[in-house]
Nucleic acid binder design. Structure first.
Lengths: 177, 177
DNA sequence: TAACCCATGTAACCTGTTACATGATTAA
DNA sequence: TTAATCATGTAACAGGTTACATGGGTTA
């Protein structure tokens, strides 16, 4: 049931429509829990049935109406309960690492290409995170409690992407040597 | 279809039974793609139907018979094709980071507990990885090609866990300061 | 006038989890 | 004699992906 928690968290931060939630990678909780728009709409329907969220239809000019959801008190209690329950660390599920395990089946050039490809993806992610840091967290002393928590998650994003990049470089180098 | 690839990779490394595969965290590909035993048995049945693997029933004394699977040539081709297809970096799906995003809903002590809890889990994982490194990869010069690939994955495990630990420490410290 | 954006949805399917079930052997 | 290990499975459900569908508005 973790998607429900991620959606409630996103709506708690800022009430919005399913469409807005689906545009996930917008510098919010979507970085740490992505989902397709079909999944999001399905889950929102459920959450509304359970009264964890409530919708207000907003009419727009020149655009379709939209349902803006916000978290109810019941929903907040549900979130609080979930947060208080200890969770286990997320399992790694990574294609690239599995591919390396079977690396001897293919030409090393294939693996090298894939490593380069991943390096550039991680570089892009890191750039994104860093630009968010500069735009929204330039003055770390002035942050309120919630922003402080969010900044911690961003710091971890930056840490992990930096480490992925370093590893890609190390791995690629081991091919050239 | 990524579980199929992970299972084929594991069987390519060492033919074994479904039961063996289910005991995943044994220093092999299971670190990077875990699955429950029910999922594994279901997938093995499919893979055998598709002729990507073949089974030999091994009779044992004092124990139930077991079906030992190995990858066929067709299965290897299938794996090779998959490896050659570029993949996107794995999406982060992490409970703890989502919880931090909604951190202002609960007492900071709740978050602090959870951070401590995660720190100890990451420490355990790091210890496991390091002991594998010492036991199987002490002499990095002597490794064959396949072992070299596997060592790269282990190095990344060590890197990421180290980074998680550092981040947990940083986050916990930010609570005390 | 073609392609894209806004906004929401259905249907079918695959992946993953939880609970239950069996039956022999072995260790405390 | 109770619990754990070996070994494989069924059933039901929840989570997640892919394809398809609609229909107005905007941009090139």
């Amino acid at each position: 049931m973790a998607l429900s928690h991620a959606l409630l968290t996103a709506l708690h931060e800022a009430p919005c429509s399913g469409y807005d939630l689906a545009k996930k990678f917008d510098g919010t909780v979507g970085f740490f829990w992505s989902a397709s728009h079909q999944q999001i709409y399905r889950e929102l329907t459920k959450l509304e049935e359970q009264a964890y969220i409530s919708a207000v239809v907003v009419q727009q000019s020149n655009r379709p109406d939209k349902k803006v959801y916000e978290v109810t008190e019941t929903g907040k209690d549900y979130l609080r309960e979930w947060i208080a329950q200890p969770s286990t660390v997320a399992a790694i599920k990574d294609d690239l690492l599995v591919k390396l395990f079977a690396g001897n089946l293919v030409d090393p050039a294939v693996i090298l290409d894939e490593l380069e490809h991943h390096r550039s993806q991680h570089q892009d992610l890191l750039d994104t995170y860093k630009s968010i840091e500069q735009r929204f967290f330039a003055d770390t002393c002035q942050l309120d409690v919630n922003r402080r928590y969010q900044y911690l998650t961003l710091r971890q994003g930056i840490r992990l992407e930096t480490e992925w990049l370093a590893w890609c470089a190390e791995a690629i180098e081991s091919f050239l040597g």
